[in-house]
Amino acid sequence: LQLFIKTLTGKTFTVEMEPSDTIENLKAKIQDKEGIPPDQQRLIFAGKQLEDGRTLSDYNIQKESTLHLVL
């Protein structure tokens, strides 16, 4: 599923993930694309901070959802 990642600077980029992927996987993918170390990434969806060990489906993140990346 394609997700939109929006940064505080207003930049938006996309990543391609599976619902079974963990937040950790997502942070690694963001590191590949943007060079931001996972330990500096905080991801927010629907007002909640996402925890590394959980999956996208745990948070009911669907295709074309927008996640906010806070550094």
Rank of each mutant, 00 (worst) to 15 (best):
Asn60Pro: 04
Ile61His: 02
Thr7Ser: 08
Ser20Pro: 04
Leu26Met: 05
Tyr59Met: 04
Leu50Ala: 02
Ser20Tyr: 13
Ile5Lys: 00
Ser20Ala: 10
Leu67Glu: 02
Asn60Tyr: 07
Leu69Val: 05
Lys6Ala: 10
Leu26Arg: 00
Ser65Gly: 06
Ile61Lys: 02
Asn60Gly: 15
Leu26Cys: 02
Gly10Gln: 04
Gly53Tyr: 12
Leu71Asn: 14
Phe45Ser: 03
Ser57Met: 11
Gln2Thr: 15
Ala28Val: 11
Gln31Ala: 13
Leu43Phe: 05
Leu3Asn: 01
Ala46Cys: 04
Glu16Arg: 09
Pro19Phe: 10
Gln62Asp: 11
Glu16Lys: 08
Glu64Lys: 08
Lys29Asp: 03
Phe13Arg: 02
Ile44Asn: 05
Gly10Met: 06
Leu50Tyr: 01
Arg42Pro: 01
Ser57Tyr: 08
Thr14Val: 10
Ile30His: 00
Thr7Cys: 04
Lys48His: 15
Ile23Phe: 02
Gly53Pro: 07
Glu16Ser: 08
Gln2Met: 15
Pro38Thr: 14
Thr14Glu: 10
Asp52Ser: 07
Gly35Tyr: 03
Val70Ile: 07
Thr7Leu: 13
Gln31Gly: 08
Arg54Lys: 14
Gln2Pro: 07
Glu24Val: 07
Phe13Lys: 01
Ser65Thr: 09
Thr22Asp: 03
Ile30Thr: 01
Gln40Thr: 08
Met17Tyr: 14
Phe13Tyr: 06
Leu67Ser: 02
Leu71Thr: 09
Lys63Tyr: 11
Gln40Pro: 02
Ile61Cys: 01
Lys27Gly: 01
Thr22Cys: 03
Phe45Pro: 00
Leu1Pro: 04
Thr7Trp: 09
Leu56Gly: 02
Leu69Cys: 02
Gln41Thr: 04
Asp58Phe: 15
Ile36Tyr: 14
Leu69Tyr: 02
Asp32Trp: 15
Glu34Trp: 10
Ile36Lys: 02
Gly53Trp: 13
Lys27Arg: 07
Ser57Cys: 03
Val15Cys: 03
Thr22Pro: 06
Glu16Asn: 13
Leu3Glu: 00
Ile23Pro: 02
Leu71Gly: 07
Ser20Lys: 08
Arg42Gln: 11
Pro37Trp: 05
Ile30Asn: 00
Leu26Ser: 00
Leu3Thr: 02
Leu8Ala: 11
Asn25Leu: 14
Asp21Glu: 08
Leu67Asp: 01
Lys29Tyr: 08
Pro38Val: 15
Tyr59Glu: 04
Pro19Gly: 09
Asn60Lys: 08
Pro19His: 10
Phe4Gln: 10
Gln49Thr: 14
Phe13Glu: 01
Asp21Trp: 04
Ile61Gly: 02
Leu3Gly: 01
Phe45Tyr: 12
Ile36Cys: 03
Asp52Tyr: 05
Gln2Ile: 12
Glu64Phe: 15
Asp58Trp: 13
Leu56Glu: 00
Thr12Leu: 12
Pro38Met: 14
Gln41Gly: 03
Gly47Arg: 04
Glu24Leu: 15
Arg42Glu: 09
Asp32Tyr: 09
Gln31Pro: 01
Asp58Thr: 05
Asp21Pro: 01
Asn60Asp: 12
Ile30Met: 02
Val70Met: 10
Lys33Cys: 04
Leu3Phe: 07
Gln41Arg: 01
Leu56Thr: 02
Lys48Asn: 07
Ile30Gly: 00
Thr22Lys: 08
Glu18Gly: 08
Gly53Phe: 09
Thr7Gly: 06
Leu1Arg: 04
Asn60Ile: 04
Ala46Val: 06
Leu3Asp: 00
Pro19Met: 11
Val70Ala: 08
Met17Gly: 07
Met17Asp: 01
Lys63Ser: 15
Glu24Ser: 15
Thr66Lys: 06
Asn25Tyr: 14
Asp39Pro: 06
Arg54Gly: 08
Arg54Phe: 14
Glu64Gln: 11
Val15Gln: 02
Leu8Gln: 08
Asp58Glu: 08
Arg42Phe: 12
Ala28Gly: 09
Leu8Cys: 05
Asp58Gly: 03
Lys29His: 07
Leu69Ile: 06
Gln40Asn: 10
Glu51Phe: 10
Lys6Asp: 05
Asp32Cys: 05
Pro38Cys: 04
Asn60Glu: 08
Leu71Glu: 08
Leu56Ala: 04
Asp39Gln: 13
Leu8Phe: 14
Ile61Leu: 07
Gln40Met: 13
Gln2Ala: 09
Gln41Cys: 04
Pro19Glu: 12
Lys27Tyr: 03
Ile44Ala: 05
Ile44Val: 10
Thr7Ala: 06
Ile23Asn: 01
Ser20Glu: 12
Leu56Cys: 03
Leu71Arg: 09
Leu43Trp: 03
Gly35Pro: 02
Thr55Lys: 10
Thr14Ser: 11
Lys29Cys: 04
Thr55Ala: 08
Gln31Val: 04
Thr12Pro: 05
Thr9Leu: 10
Lys29Ile: 11
Lys29Leu: 14
Asn25Pro: 01
Lys27Cys: 01
Lys63Thr: 13
Asn25Ala: 13
Ile44Ser: 09
His68Leu: 13
Leu56Asn: 00
Leu67Ala: 02
Ala46Arg: 11
Ile44Lys: 05
Phe13His: 03
His68Val: 10
Asp39Val: 06
Glu64Met: 11
Gln41Val: 07
Asn25Met: 15
Phe45Cys: 03
